[in-house]
Design a protein around this nucleic acid. Structure first.
Lengths: 234, 234
DNA sequence: GGCGCTTTGTGAAAACATGCACATGGGATC
DNA sequence: GATCCCATGTGCATGTTTTCACAAAGCGCC
């Protein structure tokens, strides 16, 4: 039996933090640091130390008590667990503003997600070149997916086209989708979807701004009430 | 006493879903639908009905038993709660690939976050025009923030410049930050930060792909073991 | 080789979020 | 104006995530 076959399931919240730890660890490695404590990593990642330890404990016991974690080894283990020991080519659907920026965004390639292709339904966009890649027809999707072994698709279309784009990705054999359109996609079970909605992020910030304003206002009202109480009757 | 002064705090998980409900409700309103049940909204938002009801109950009792929710009124209430009853101008720091795409991305303006300005530290980028806005110098930041009443900043710089960009935003008076750089920002308390890291999203998908592969492999191994068991000894 | 220092790894508690299930109450029909 | 129907609003149980606190364990120094 291999040492860690299926391995116990890692909580989703932890999975979402591992990439952050990874990023910080790589930074430290580049700085020549070769050992780090949960405390140190916690500080870099903006979380608390107990959380770091519990998160890392899901991967196995890779720390040394009294010392900390060896940076390189931890990088290796997190990479392995996240499936980052090889590249995952991605295909982008939609060559509008956002699709073009994503295609040209070096961060993808740099972090193990080379852009295998970018496609658009609009014939006038096809064959234009964005971010070093030639835009291809949506009809070429199956061919791109098959020939490059793509399993992750990125949707950067307008909302109205997102579900259709999704369907074509799934039909072409993609099993994970990153959706930038403000649309809830329906997919067969077994296909993973993550949604990133830039406006939603801003709206959440707006809530906190709003709240701050309300609280201040209410504190002022309260202060007034207190003053009144002091000066006069009850 | 006003009817809903500070109002009980809304759970963060709910705050993150309200924008999605809002989006769906606006879509329904545009379609001429004027009433919707928790069940219907749940389906559109991709969550379950009890959750919708509980989430909406934090806003108050705005539904009608036996009937559902009036779409327009709910839109109004969610907008008010999220602070979306007025626009929130944003300033973008960094006019690279991503910054340009964001500046040109209609979704921001459309959903209440007009781009009040985009700035860059690189003199060669200053005065170029992207997405209808002229890039201005980083030094103009305080002036832009003050004159346009900006309270939300978007960081679209390379990671190495992100903390400096953040500091300047805070100093200029911005109190909420949306950070696209893969960096943990440190900010004074009272400033809200949200981070969106595109590569992290892909890495989370990668984990699930990886896992799928492992499970399949392990199922195969298991099948082999069973076959062996069948064919021979134990 | 033992002692003390340090930091991990992890049970157990607390906080938070989800989902069920049903009492409650509004609207429609007669 | 009484009755039925239906979907909301919510108490409660369940599941997940965070945090605490401490025993276990490696390292270096004497």
């Amino acid at each position: 039996m291999p040492p860690h076959r299926t391995r116990r399931r890692i909580p989703e919240a932890t999975v979402a933090r591992l990439p952050v730890y990874l990023q910080m660890l790589i930074e430290q490695a580049d700085l020549g640091i070769d050992s780090i404590s949960s405390e140190g990593l916690a500080e870099l990642a903006g979380v608390n130390a107990a959380k770091v330890r519990k998160d890392l404990s899901y991967l196995g016991s890779y720390g040394t008590r009294g010392v900390g974690y060896e940076v390189d080894y931890l990088v290796y283990q997190i990479r392995r667990e996240l499936g980052l020991d090889h590249d995952w080519p991605v295909v982008i659907v939609g060559a509008g503003n956002l699709g073009q920026a994503l295609a040209g965004y070096g961060g993808f390639h740099e972090r193990g997600f080379p852009v295998a292709g970018i496609v658009d339904i609009d014939p006038s966009k096809v064959d234009t070149v964005v971010g070093g890649a030639r835009v291809r027809s949506l009809d070429d999707l199956p061919q791109i997916v098959a020939s490059k072994g793509v399993s992750i698709g990125v949707i950067a279309t307008p909302p109205s086209a997102a579900q259709a784009a999704c369907d074509r990705l799934v039909k072409a054999g993609v099993t994970s989708i990153l959706n930038f359109a403000p649309t809830i996609l329906s997919v067969p079970i077994g296909v993973a979807v993550r949604k990133v909605d830039l406006a939603v992020e801003l709206q959440i910030l707006s809530y906190h701004e709003q709240r701050r304003a309300n609280v201040q206002q209410s504190a002022q009202l309260h202060a007034v009430a207190v003053d009144r109480g002091r000066g006069a009757s009850a």
